[in-house]
Write a protein that binds this DNA or RNA. Structure first.
Lengths: 211, 211
DNA sequence: TATGCTTTGTAACATCTGTTACCAAGGGTT
DNA sequence: AACCCTTGGTAACAGATGTTACAAAGCATA
């Protein structure tokens, strides 16, 4: 059962009858780091409430070029990890577990009935949309106004933050995919960041010093 | 009065009592092309319903670098041109009239009460959020996956579409601001597009051939 | 230790984008 | 015509990023 964890993260948000319904209709899903939660084009049937861990949200174009949009953090006012939960539409994004995570999955049908019944749920959904919107604006700022070296450092800092660990276990190639660039560019810029004293590097392990 | 125009664009969406309320509490605002509707950091007091014309939504960073996010079209299911109408928060974006436009302004207070009262309004707000989200994703795709020449052509096509005119009246400098680059770059790429037969150019007038 | 795979470092080069500088063309005013 | 201001064209260069190629280091396993 996930009653305790749910109370802890969402108890202060939702009224008791709504909490009851969430317990009744929601199901707990445990996923391991790296596991894919939803793929682009897939039909959305459930909405996730994150209890623990972190999820990364990715975008992809026709040529299979990838880009990380943002992370959803554990304990975050997370909902609408999927921009298009409502109305039976298909996913515009891919969601992948960044760490091991525990998620309560709510069927979309319930969600829609709650919109009318529970004021706190309505507010929660609106707040979540707004939070996602801010994340997207932040992503746009990053793409439009920052150069790759700053984007890289920010990525490492974000990653350290959501995992709660200043040691990052990722290859240069994996980082390159997230930032939509090439491995050589990442190696080059990481070396530069190391020379500047902002990180230190070992094989498969980057330590972020400048948090 | 704006009863007819409102009926025409929103009548099929909202139930009659809601239409009455919109007429009662909304006020018509006519703006000329180029006029600013809202500035970054301003408190949001009204939500706009676009009756005619087009609005462009811009983002800016600390260094006053600008970037066009997207256009809102006349007749579009437009609301939430401002990502943060709810909750008395401040604007993350700037809105500028791209053409002359007519807008019904709804006080935020009304809007919030309607969320509980009218199912159609609730759906409208959610749909709008979703539409804005898709626009932002589209903007991200453009920034992450396209080069400047394609971004430029897309910009010209978008602009022709929202104004309903394949003649674009803008200086190279103005276009450069929208795309967050320099005038020289735009001149260079416009010349290239002209050589490729996709546009034709005269002073202060670009004709989009490849629509 | 020998072998093979993955990961990282680095050089050399191509290309795209941004910057500076200057001139020319267009259009309006006196 | 003479003048001025805005706009556009172009060269030359700088810097950032992407690409290709290859070598070296780290790690696992036979």
């Amino acid at each position: 059962m996930f009653k305790e964890a749910l109370e802890q993260h969402y108890g202060f948000l939702f009224e008791p009858p709504l909490m009851e319904e969430i317990l009744a209709y929601g199901s707990l899903k445990k996923v391991a780091a790296g596991q894919q939660l939803i793929e682009i084009g897939e039909l959305i049937t459930h909405m996730p409430l994150l209890l623990s861990g972190a999820i990364k949200i990715m975008r992809e174009d026709e040529k299979s070029d990838e880009l990380l949009l943002y992370f959803i953090e554990k304990g975050d006012t997370c909902a609408m990890s999927f921009s298009c939960c409502m109305g039976g539409s298909k996913s515009d994004i891919r969601a992948v577990a960044e760490t091991d995570a525990e998620i309560v999955m709510i069927p979309v049908a319930q969600m829609e009935s709650w919109m009318g019944k529970y004021k706190t749920w309505q507010q929660f959904v609106l707040d979540s949309y707004q939070a996602r919107m801010k994340e997207l604006l932040q992503t746009i700022d990053t793409l439009a106004f920052m150069r790759m070296d700053d984007r890289l450092l920010k990525h490492l800092q974000d990653k350290a933050k959501v995992t709660g660990d200043d040691h990052i276990h990722a290859t240069h190639q994996e980082i390159a995919y997230d930032l939509h660039t090439s491995r050589v560019v990442i190696s080059r810029l990481l070396k530069k960041l190391e020379n500047e004293g902002k990180i230190s590097m070992h094989r498969n392990d980057i330590t972020v010093i400048d948090l």
